[in-house]
Design a binder for these strands. Structure first.
Lengths: 329, 329
DNA sequence: CTGAAAGCGCTAACAT
DNA sequence: ATGTTAGCGCTTTCAG
């Protein structure tokens, strides 16, 4: 900056003001400084700026995985919202581990980000402490069943499970199987299953069994699991999958083996991923506002005007979901 | 840090050494410092650290989009490699625009990252200048057809197109249609098409037409395009899609309309996405090392031992690809 | 409208 | 094995 100042014949402070568009600068000086900066290829050092000004345009983003399009959709929403306001996401993945989340949060907080995005509402005590000690603004996403640290942008996972169960029951199905993945480490899937179970119980229907694969969810895994489920003696009349990937794998299994859906077996998924529209048969699923959850969280954190240390008490913003009836139930 | 030092009864410098595990510290002092830090909930300020030490564990990542699983796979590879070595990705998306890439690179460079990942080999003059002026280490990914700035981890897009064409020709197809998306802004898809065309020309086969949708690629879009293509009078006997999303949409169209593949129409894609394995029919495609390209690039940039300002001249590392024959040709 | 001085929190370099 | 000094590049604050 000194070099630019020398070259433009002004003080370093004036250069700073020009670069940041702050304070009044005569047009003449401004253009001289801009030219000088251009000429020597000056690039601001944001580390210094952020250190001194005690604020960074950085938002920490902590997600369970990048291997599931659900989170890349969310990340996409966050990124778009942030980019628009000149913020940058800096992020890490937890692989669904609370310990890793804790370490990551601690590390990311050392960059003094002005905000942090967390997935879900369940975090270790230490994570919560670290966050509240740092006074970053927090946005939790995906879930609203529980108490947020500050603001949660999400939907009720439990209600999604309930609504799916109700719809399947309404269509006459009585004997169910649940198919999930990730060893059940996905807490939100667990909440959906919980809601699903509850409605079944109240209706006197049967949840024959719960299949939880240890693999990450994928179409291939869904196809495999479905093959297993359908080859057992206690064949159900409907399968509730923890998400669309698994469910569409199930559809593929049936398609490939001439099993008629929903006559021989009904299936339902969760998420409402775009590719479902391309399948030969429309999957019954819950459409979730993935991009929007990320986008809203990003907007919230990038909003400079919002009260910094929210005096408002923890609350959630329900972005809802819709049941896509489809043809598989 | 001063507070920690006071509490532990040592100098600030000692705290610094403990926090960073540098230099010799007696066990006694170390534990005193660690306790003190714990007690007051001390969190390093990496801005200050990076400013003073003139190095950051930050890697800038610039990708065209997050809306295509190809790039999220790559990002996943990058993230894994970086995380392992204590680096953090900070990133942005260009939406396939060179101008946005330029602005993004400039902005990200202001964080003084120690490395930057760029997609493809084509960048504006200004982008190249900004990068070379900053002395960050650069890794380009995806493509190797061209001259990298420094090191490229990728595969030959052109060769992929050529190999696909050869395989399809070998299977007796003669009249082709190409189906692409993104308004052709995807330069790598363009290179594949180029290789494809060339082989066709040499073999005297016909490229009946090229359909380029303005939408981002997706299964739904692929299904739509296929429907269009097959309803025209000059029906081809094979379709080469710019990627698997489009191609599997084509498969879905055929499946839903009782069109037999490859008898009535042959199809081929590109990428070898995992979900293909779940489809009722195996798509002929090129399997690309997406995660690996990201991972290798990440490892390279996070490798502290590597020569900083590579004296070595620009080169590429060919991670190759494999043709998955499948059943659709 | 512009400038001078001070200092953000840390670590490199040099003591001891 | 630990301490002292200086300064990274910027912005805050106060002057004019």
């Amino acid at each position: 900056m000194d070099d630019v100042a020398d070259r433009a014949g002004v003080s370093q402070m004036t250069v700073s003001r020009v670069m940041n568009g702050k304070g009044y600068i005569s047009k003449e000086v401004r253009s001289r400084v801009e030219t000088a900066a251009q000429e020597i290829g000056y690039v601001q050092n944001r580390l210094a700026r952020s250190l001194r000004s005690e604020q960074t345009p950085l938002i920490a983003v902590v997600l369970p995985t990048l291997g599931n399009s659900v989170f890349t959709d969310v990340l996409s929403g966050i990124t778009d919202a942030l980019t628009q306001k000149g913020f940058r996401p800096v992020f890490g993945v937890t692989e669904y581990s609370e310990d890793k989340e804790e370490a990551l949060v601690r590390d990311l907080l050392s960059w003094r980000p002005s905000g942090i995005v967390l997935a879900g509402l369940e975090h270790s005590q230490a994570t919560r402490r670290a966050i509240s000690a740092s006074s970053v603004r927090v946005a939790e996403i995906m879930d609203i069943d529980g108490t947020p640290i500050s603001v949660a942008f999400g939907m009720s996972q439990r209600a999604a499970g309930q609504e799916t169960a109700k719809y399947m029951l309404a269509n006459g199905h009585r004997r169910f199987v649940y198919a999930g993945s990730q060893d059940g480490r996905d807490l939100r899937a667990a909440k959906r299953l919980d809601g699903f179970r509850q409605v079944l119980r109240e209706a006197g229907a049967t949840l024959v069994s719960e299949h939880i694969s240890s693999e990450p969810s994928s179409m291939v895994e869904g196809r495999k699991m479905t093959s297993d489920i359908l080859s057992r003696p206690d064949r159900p009349d409907a399968i509730y999958y923890s998400n669309d990937d698994l469910a569409s794998g199930g559809i593929m299994h049936c398609l490939a083996n001439g099993i008629s859906i929903p006559d021989e077996i009904a299936v339902a998924g969760f998420n409402g991923l775009p590719f479902l529209d391309a399948l030969p048969i429309q999957l019954t699923t819950i459409v979730t506002p993935r991009y929007e959850m990320g986008h809203r969280a990003g907007q919230f954190l990038a909003d400079v005007n919002a009260t910094s240390s929210d005096a408002t008490k923890p609350h959630h913003i329900d972005l809802g979901f819709t049941l896509h009836e489809g043809e598989t139930c």
